[in-house]
Amino acid sequence: MPPSAIAYAELYVTDDREASGFLIDSLGFVPLAVAGPATGTHDRRSTVLRSGEVTLVVTQALHPGTTVARHVEEHGDSIADLAFSCYDVQSCFDRAVLAGATALQQPTPSLRCGQDSWFAAVSGFGDVRHTLVAATDDRAGQLPPDRDWAFLPAATGPAAPRPVLDHVAVCLEAGTLRGTADFYEAAFDMPFYSSEYIEVGDQAMDSIVVRNAEGGITFTLIEPDDTRVPGQITQFLHAHNGPGVQHLAFLVDDIVGSVRALGDCGVAFLRTPGAYYDLLAERVSDMADAIADLRETNVLADRDEWGHMLQIFTRSPYPRGTLFYEYIQRNGARGFGSSNIKALYEALEREREVAGR
Rank of each mutant, 00 (worst) to 15 (best):
L248H: 09
I6W: 03
H71F: 15
V200Y: 12
I255P: 02
S285N: 09
A281W: 08
R70F: 06
L62S: 11
D16P: 03
A181L: 00
D25K: 13
F192R: 06
D304H: 02
E199C: 10
A187Q: 00
L323H: 00
Q246S: 10
T136H: 11
V209S: 05
Q232M: 08
H71R: 05
E214T: 11
V48Y: 12
A135P: 08
I255F: 07
E305Y: 00
V133C: 03
S91P: 12
T41S: 14
V133G: 03
T156W: 03
L300Q: 10
T41P: 05
C265V: 01
R70N: 14
H75V: 03
V30T: 11
F336R: 00
E10A: 06
A301W: 04
G332Y: 06
R50Y: 01
T102S: 14
Y345T: 08
L279I: 10
A121M: 13
F313D: 01
V164T: 10
L98G: 04
S194C: 08
G157L: 00
R320S: 04
A159T: 12
V299T: 10
A333L: 06
H247D: 08
L143I: 14
F250I: 01
C171Q: 13
G274A: 12
N212E: 08
Y193D: 15
T102M: 14
